[in-house]
């Protein structure tokens, strides 16, 4: 078995999941579970594909993906905060909206159904061309930088402290004079930016856009956040487990005894079991 290749592919598969999951960490910490990550990622990916293809400029593509991520993240949280919409239902609606809008405009703009692939979509190039590092572009490094940054923001800054206070007890935070809406909105802006990067990563590595390009990665990111109790470091470990499970399954099928469906199933099962065990322990106390 080719170990470096396995590690490289595991890390690459983890990258978009990790980026979106860090967005999810901010939302979870402020007390707003975000199951719309998948939709945000898909819409950003679409915007990255259109702008990247038209301008042949990867920076503009990423920029438009981030902007798209922010716009729809704000739409999501606006419905939740201002219009008192149900968080979960709006999240589900956002995922549906993303599939609909990207499919609709894919056909309107490119005249193709479901999938658009072109070598004229620009491609991210590796930052350092040594060993397995040559498999990694800038977003791979950035994703891990964001894990650190998230941890620092959440646990070492006043902004993070107040954000977590909102998540802990919104009314208490409000009565202490914390501008709760500011923290809730900004957590979604951050989430939009990170999902934008995640979407760009997919498009600018695969040089493709399809209606199912995200293929559940947003939900895996969401599961990772829950599994890691919204702690950035634990969440990143969960993302790695998901990423490597998939990399094992894709690249080394013949080496793995277990059927791929069972391997893919385990992380989801693990989230349920972890939650049950956590509550079992606290019940016992």
């Amino acid at each position: 078995m080719n170990l470096p290749l396995l590690i490289a592919s595991g890390i690459r598969i983890t990258t978009p999941i990790l980026l979106a999951a860090m967005g999810g960490v901010f939302n979870q910490q402020v007390g707003l579970m975000n199951i719309g990550l998948e939709g945000l990622m898909l819409l950003s990916a679409f915007s990255a594909a259109v702008v990247g293809f038209r301008t042949q400029n990867i920076i503009l593509g990423i920029f438009s993906a981030i902007l798209t991520g922010i716009i729809f993240a704000l739409l999501h949280v606006f419905f939740v905060i201002k219009l008192k919409a149900n968080l979960i239902i709006v999240g589900i609606a956002l995922d549906l909206l993303a599939v609909g809008l990207s499919g609709y405009f894919l056909q309107i703009i490119f005249g193709v159904k479901g999938i658009f692939s072109s070598p004229r979509i620009p491609r991210l190039s590796p930052l350092i061309r040594i060993g397995i590092m040559s498999e990694f572009d800038i977003l791979v490094y950035m994703s891990w930088f964001f894990v650190l940054l998230t941890a620092i923001i959440l646990y070492k800054t006043r902004y993070g402290l107040r954000m977590r206070a909102c998540g802990e007890n919104l009314e208490a935070a409000f009565s202490l004079g914390i501008k709760v809406d500011f923290y809730r909105y900004t957590s979604y802006i951050i989430s939009g930016i990170l999902c934008g990067l995640a979407g760009s990563y997919l498009v600018f590595t695969l040089q493709i856009f399809s209606k199912n390009i995200t293929a559940g990665r947003g939900f895996i990111a969401f599961a990772s956040v829950l599994f890691g109790s919204a702690n950035p470091l634990l969440t990143s470990v969960a993302c790695l487990i998901f990423g490597f499970a998939e990399s094992l399954q894709i690249r080394f099928q013949s080496f793995v005894e277990l059927p791929p469906q069972i391997i893919q199933m385990l992380p989801y099962l693990a989230v349920v079991i972890a939650l049950a065990l956590k509550n079992l322990r606290s019940e016992g106390v």
């Binding site: 419905f79 239902i89 609606a93 909206l97 609909g100 056909q107």
Partner: peptide, 21 residues
Amino acid sequence: PIDLSNVLEAVIIFFVTAKII
């Protein structure tokens, strides 16, 4: 594109849940 149906459904959900709560 038929995807418009998905968009309509999603927008309906957005507006209805806004009222429910």
